[in-house]
Design a protein around this nucleic acid. Structure first.
Length: 480
RNA sequence: GGCGCCAUGGUGUAACUGGUUAACACGCCGCCCUCUCAAGGCGGAGAGUUCGGGUUCGAUCCCCGAUGGCGCUACCA
């Protein structure tokens, strides 16, 4: 592929908040598209709203992208450091008669808007400054009067574009306001800076949220006025909460990092996000688990859906268990160690034992946090017994007493294997006329603190005879 | 309000350019397995494709309208 046909895309978040799931998916789609075609992914920080932007949020966004494994090829570029480009672009538009100075102050505009709203008509800018003669306007500006620069939207006709997802979209020019390009303080608005940057950065495809569809004609108008070639627009449907309103804090976690903190695997989250509003086509309709390589190979704009998608936590949880289950244990270990660190938990087992235990446990883990909470007993002697589990399987004094006696049998065992431990327990149960199940269930709680665990005898071997014996002997001390 | 977009079970999606008992996954229910729970196996409930017209031999698919949802409507992005 030659460089002229190699696509260039960008993710352009505004650092007014952390990376949220909608933004993450937009970033993911851009990334998949770039990687699929061997193009370039550019990261641009849209921080022209100085009030609301912060360096901390930029860091948060970068952290989120790194967590998801979405790397970029150029940037991050900061719009706040490219002000000259925007001013020059505005000047160009001014010089070619596509823009004009507007001396209306913000207060005046607000007042007029309020009045207009009362009487009915849509509160669009009335274009009053458009009729000020060029020279007169220049003179006023030279005299020090504050002014913004507005784009002069054509009077009649319409503006349209062909969206790669939505098809042809058309807006009557009469519906488009003479929007501000450059504020009176010389800072560009979004409308100006996106276009100036998208042109300057030679972007070929603009993949972004569908909330920008209505802004697009304003941008198309600028491309034309600037004599620039239009990129291909691809608007991605929005991600909604369970109540079908736009995903927000009300619905719980919106920051991508919150999902990391919840114990979600980045690969699982990425796979889940990829399925929101995109499908690889009918030949893969029975498949939902896709590796990054699959996703990159299969991704295309045609697979993007037009309707909004609802974020489903259950489905995400399912992806997560699938990924944990099949994750390479050695690669899982550092992620689990991170969870331990967060919980101030220190394992007391050897590295080999830890690997073996993770292997045993990962098929039934729901998330990474499990290893630092309900699975503690496998890694350390300091763990709590779940009161509900104790009440269910250890409330009978006879069971407790038998389990303590069982410890003595295990003490005499010459080899401690799944087979020998099971035989010992079953024989012991027979001799005492109780069901093996009762002892197994009780032992499970005594050994792991939980009513749920892998096969008991596999657990015993993983724990080792010393711990098994000690914990069984201590069964009477477990609080009821 | 105006403008734009969208509309398949509870959720995510499939159904080649109109012809299928409308498919798959998550979730839900039941059974099997069994030392618990997951997993796994088997089975089930759940949509006639938002509604109403039209075109057609035939519409989830094309057209019109309605309804609903979402988006935009700032010197925010």
């Amino acid at each position: 592929m030659t460089s002229s046909t190699s696509p260039r895309v960008r993710f352009a978040p505004s650092p007014t908040g952390y990376l949220h799931v909608g933004g993450a998916r937009t970033a993911l789609f851009n990334w998949l598209f770039a990687r699929h075609f061997g193009g370039a992914m550019i990261l641009r920080i849209e921080d022209t709203d100085f009030e609301r932007s912060s360096e901390e949020m930029v860091e948060g966004i970068l952290t989120g992208m790194r967590w998801l494994g979405l790397n970029w090829d150029e940037g991050p570029f900061y719009q706040s450091r490219r002000l000259d480009l925007y001013r020059a672009t505005a000047e160009k538009l001014l010089a070619s008669g596509h823009a004009y100075y507007c001396f209306c102050t913000k207060a005046e505009l607000e007042k007029r808007r309020a009045e207009a709203a009362a009487s009915g008509p849509p509160p669009m800018y009335d274009r009053r400054c458009r009729s000020i003669e060029c020279n007169a306007a220049a003179a006023r500006k030279a005299a020090g009067e504050a002014c913004a620069i507005r784009f002069a939207v054509p009077d009649g006709g319409s503006t349209s574009f062909d969206d790669a997802v939505f098809g042809r979209v058309e807006f009557a020019n009469a519906e488009i306001e003479d929007f501000v390009l450059l504020r009176s303080d010389g800072v560009p608005t979004y409308h100006l800076s996106v276009v100036a940057d998208d042109i300057d950065m030679r972007l070929t495809h603009i993949i972004r949220g569908a909330d920008h569809i209505s802004n697009t004609p304003k941008q198309v108008l600028q491309y034309r006025a600037l004599g620039a070639e239009l990129p291909i627009f691809a608007h991605v449907p929005l991600i909604l909460g369970p109540d079908k309103t736009r995903l927000s804090k009300r619905h719980g976690a919106t920051s991508v990092i919150a999902y990391k903190d919840m114990g979600i695997l980045p690969e699982a989250f990425r796979n889940f996000l990829s399925q929101l509003g995109w499908t690889p086509g009918p030949e893969h309709k029975d498949q939902e688990i896709f590796s990054s390589e699959d996703l990159i190979r299969l991704f295309s704009l045609d697979g993007i859906s037009k309707s909004n998608a609802v974020f489903n936590n259950d489905k995400l949880a399912w992806f997560n268990t699938e990924y944990i289950r099949s994750y390479d244990t050695k690669k899982l270990l550092p992620l689990i160690e991170e969870e331990w660190k967060v919980c101030n938990f220190t394992p007391e087992r050897s590295p080999e034992d830890i690997l073996h235990i993770i292997d045993l446990l990962k098929p039934r883990a729901r998330n990474l946090k499990d290893f630092a909470t309900i699975f503690r007993a496998y890694f350390s002697d300091s763990f709590e017994h779940d009161p509900a589990a104790v009440a269910k399987f250890l409330k009978d004094p006879a069971t407790r007493s038998l389990l303590a006696q069982l410890a003595n049998r295990y003490q005499q065992l010459s080899e401690f294997t799944e087979y020998s431990t099971e035989q010992t327990l079953r024989t012991f149960a027979d001799e005492n006329g109780v069901k093996a199940g009762a002892l197994i269930n009780g032992a499970r709680v005594a050994l792991t603190g939980q009513a749920v665990a892998p096969s008991l005898f596999a657990v015993m071997v993983a724990l080792g005879n010393d711990r098994v014996i000690a914990r069984l002997k201590a069964v009477e001390e477990i609080a009821q």
